[in-house]
C-alpha cells in the first residue's frame, strides 16, 4: 500500500518537458490549475483535458505512471462524486429502479468535479515526473527570491524541501520494515476499534522517530564533510536557464489560459 505513493518521484528520461526551466513549469502548473477551476462550460473542460493530454504526451512518461499517481485518490474522487450525485438539489432521476433519487444537476456536478480532480493530479504529476526534486526546489527558490529581501530564508527552505523529498522513500521503506517487525511480534494494525488502532501505532512511530533523528544527525555530519556551508557562493551542476522552448511553452500556456477566460465570458 505504501509503495503506491508516487507523487514526487522523478522519472529520469529526456523529453521536451524535462528540458524546460523548472520556473516555467511551476508557473504554468499554477496557471493550469487556475484555468481548470475557472472552466465553467463543456468546451472549456474539453480544452483543459486536451491541454493536459498534450502535456502528458510531451512528458514522454508512460501513461501507466499517471494512473499509478491517481491510485491513492480514486477513493476521494468516487466519494465526492457520490456525494454530489445524491445530495445536489435539482431534477430528480430514478435509475435502475433505485429508491434513492439522483439529480441531473448532481450528475453533471459530479462529472465536473471528478474531471477537475483528475486533471489536477495528472498535471501536478507531470511536473514532478519531469523535474528532479533539486531542480524543482531550485526553481521554487528562484521564484521566491524577491521574498529573500524581506528576510525569508529561501535557500534553507528549498534545501529542507529537497531533503524531505529525498527521504520520503527511505522513511516509507523503514515504516514498512518496522511494521513487519512489530506484526511478527503479534502487533495488530488492521483490526479493532479506532482507539485500538491508534494505540497500536505507538510502537511503530516511536522507533520511526528515533531512527529519523539518528538519520538527521548522520546526514548533518555527512553534509558538513562535503563542505556544506549554506547558500552563499553555491553553484549548481544544472544551472537553471530560460531557453527558447520555455518561451514557446509560456506562450502556449498563456494562449490556453486566455481561451478558457474567453469561453467563460462568451458562453
Amino acid at each position: 500500500m505504501l509503495k503506491d505513493i508516487t507523487l514526487g518521484q522523478y522519472f529520469p528520461i529526456d523529453s521536451p518537458l524535462h528540458r524546460m526551466d523548472p520556473r516555467t513549469k511551476i508557473l504554468s502548473l499554477i496557471l493550469l490549475i487556475v484555468a481548470i477551476f475557472l472552466a465553467n462550460n463543456p468546451w472549456a473542460y474539453v480544452l483543459a483535458a486536451a491541454f493536459t493530454l498534450l502535456v502528458v504526451a510531451l512528458s514522454k512518461v508512460p501513461v501507466s505512471m499517471y494512473f499509478r499517481g491517481l491510485k491513492p485518490i480514486w477513493f476521494v474522487i468516487i466519494f465526492t462524486a457520490l456525494l454530489n450525485i445524491f445530495f445536489t438539489p435539482g431534477t430528480k432521476i430514478y435509475l435502475f429502479g433505485y429508491r434513492t433519487p439522483m439529480t441531473w444537476e448532481g450528475l453533471i456536478l459530479a462529472g465536473k468535479m471528478a474531471l477537475r480532480l483528475v486533471l489536477l493530479i495528472i498535471s501536478s504529476s507531470a511536473l514532478t515526473y519531469t523535474t528532479s526534486p533539486i531542480l524543482l526546489t531550485d526553481g521554487i527558490e528562484k521564484l521566491l527570491k524577491p521574498l529573500a529581501k524581506l528576510g525569508l530564508p529561501t535557500f534553507e527552505l528549498a534545501m529542507m524541501m529537497s531533503i524531505a523529498i529525498r527521504f520520503i522513500p527511505t522513511l516509507i521503506e523503514e515504516t514498512d520494515k518496522i511494521m513487519k517487525a512489530q506484526k511478527a511480534r503479534g502487533a495488530d494494525f488492521e483490526s479493532g476499534s479506532v482507539l485500538h488502532r491508534v494505540k497500536a501505532l505507538a510502537p511503530m512511530l516511536v522507533p520511526l522517530f528515533i531512527s529519523a533523528f539518528r538519520r538527521a544527525d548522520e546526514l548533518a555530519v555527512a553534509m558538513e564533510s562535503r563542505c556544506y556551508q549554506g547558500g552563499e557562493h553555491r553553484t549548481r551542476l544544472n544551472e537553471i536557464r530560460f531557453h527558447l522552448i520555455d518561451a514557446f511553452a509560456g506562450l502556449l500556456m498563456l494562449a490556453f489560459f486566455a481561451a478558457v477566460i474567453i469561453l467563460r465570458i462568451i458562453l
Partner: peptide
Amino acid sequence: IVATVVEEDVAFAPEN
C-alpha cells in the same frame, strides 16, 4: 546521500 538523482548527489560537494 542528499539528492534524488545519482549525479546531483555526486555534485553536492563541488556545488558547495
